[in-house]
Amino acid sequence: MSQTTPRIAPLQPPYAPDIAGQFDRIMRGAPPLVLFRVMAGNARAWEKFRAGNLLDRGPLSLREREIAIDRTCARTGCEYEWGVHVTTFAEAAKLTDEQVRATVRGAATEACWSEAEQALIAAVDALHERATLSETEFADLSAHHDEAKIFEIILLCGFYRTVSYLANGLALPLEGKAARFPR
Rank of each mutant, 00 (worst) to 15 (best):
Y80V: 01
D18G: 01
P13Y: 07
S164R: 05
D140I: 09
T136C: 00
E175K: 04
E81Y: 04
A148C: 02
A126Q: 12
F49C: 07
A20C: 00
F49G: 14
A108T: 00
A102W: 03
W82A: 12
A102N: 10
P6Q: 02
A92E: 14
E147K: 07
A9Q: 13
N168Y: 03
L33R: 14
A111T: 14
A43S: 13
L141C: 09
N42W: 03
C157F: 05
Q22V: 10
T162H: 09
L35H: 11
F89Q: 02
L156H: 09
N168C: 03
L172M: 13
D146W: 06
A102L: 10
L95W: 09
A171W: 06
A108L: 01
G41W: 02
E117C: 03
I67E: 01
R50S: 13
T72E: 06
R37D: 02
A30Q: 15
L120S: 01
L60N: 09
L60I: 07
P59L: 06
T5G: 05
D146P: 05
I26N: 09
L55F: 11
N42C: 14
P31T: 11
E135D: 15
R161P: 04
L133N: 10
T103M: 14
P6S: 15
H128W: 06
G158A: 06
V38T: 12
A111W: 01
A107D: 15
T87I: 03
W82V: 11
R161G: 13
T96F: 07
L156P: 08
L11V: 09
P31E: 15
S2D: 00
T132L: 10
L35G: 11
S114R: 06
T136V: 13
A126E: 12
L33Y: 00
E91K: 14
A74G: 09
F151S: 07
R75H: 03
L127P: 01
A43E: 15
G21Y: 08
L33K: 12
L54G: 07
G83P: 03
A119G: 10
S61R: 08
A90S: 15
V104A: 12
R44A: 12
E47D: 14
P31S: 13
E91C: 04
Y165V: 11
G106I: 06
R57C: 00
G176T: 14
A131L: 11
